[in-house]
Computed example of a mutant assay.
Amino acid sequence: MKRFFDLVLAVLAALVLVLPVIVIALLVRLTSPGPVLYWSDRVGRHSRIFKMPKFRSMQIGTPAVATHLLNDAKVYLTPIGSFLRKSSLDELPQLWSILVGDMSFVGPRPALFNQDDLIALRSKNGVDELVPGLTGWAQVNGRDELPIPEKVKLDLEYLQRQSLGFDIRILWLTFVKVLQRDGVSH
Rank of each mutant, 00 (worst) to 15 (best):
V23K: 05
A25K: 05
A25T: 06
V28G: 11
R29A: 15
T31M: 12
S32T: 13
S32C: 14
P33E: 09
G34K: 09
P35K: 15
V36L: 08
V36A: 12
V36N: 09
L37I: 06
W39E: 11
D41K: 10
R42S: 13
G44D: 13
R45Q: 13
H46R: 07
H46G: 09
H46V: 03
S47Q: 13
S47I: 07
R48D: 11
F50A: 09
K51N: 07
M52Y: 12
K54Q: 08
R56S: 03
S57K: 00
S57Y: 01
S57V: 00
M58A: 01
I60M: 04
I60H: 06
G61T: 05
G61V: 02
T62F: 01
P63K: 00
A64R: 00
V65D: 00
V65R: 03
H68L: 05
L70Y: 00
L70G: 01
L70A: 06
N71Q: 14
D72H: 02
D72R: 02
Y76I: 01
L77A: 13
L77D: 07
T78S: 11
P79F: 01
S82Y: 06
S82C: 08
F83D: 01
L84E: 07
L84T: 12
R85I: 03
S88F: 05
S88A: 08
S88Q: 04
D90T: 14
D90R: 13
E91R: 12
L92D: 07
P93W: 06
P93H: 08
P93A: 03
P93S: 07
L95Q: 10
L95I: 15
L95D: 08
